[in-house]
């Protein structure tokens, strides 16, 4: 199984080196933010898509990368956190007192 993977990896590397319009895994890294923002120019997007069709490692990498973004968004918008509309009474008073002073 490991030998098959090694052969596949070598063939994949050969394809990356020799196929026209192909980018490497490393070059793909530089496109990732724009790709997910939808701001990648069409020609580069094609290269990105082509690479993903040939490279399961990058496919899985991108999937985990997106999962990371989702996890961080979910974690920072914690449903257990205090209701955002709640503002501590002492803070309201402090702000209004500071405004009086500032006026």
């Amino acid at each position: 199984m490991k030998a098959e993977k090694t052969v596949f990896k070598k063939l994949s590397a050969l394809a990356m080196r020799t196929m026209p319009l192909m980018v490497t895994c490393q070059e793909l890294e530089g496109f990732m933010v724009d790709y997910l923002d939808g701001t990648l120019p069409r020609a580069q997007r094609r290269k990105f898509d082509l690479h993903l069709r040939l490279c399961p490692d990058c496919w899985r990498y991108l999937e985990a990368y997106q999962r990371t973004i989702s996890l961080s968004q979910a974690a920072c918008r914690d449903p257990d956190a205090p209701v955002p509309a709640d503002v501590p009474e002492e803070l309201v008073k402090a702000i209004l007192a500071a405004r009086e002073k500032d006026a």
Partner: peptide, 27 residues
């Protein structure tokens, strides 16, 4: 507030689309 990720990927490698996209409620 929540950036909408594009559903960008062709369905290859039998892995399906990344499952997390758009799963997080938008703020």
């Amino acid at each position: 507030a929540a950036r909408r990720l594009q559903p960008p990927l062709p369905n290859t490698w039998g892995l399906g689309y990344p499952r997390c996209m758009d799963a997080v409620p938008k703020q």
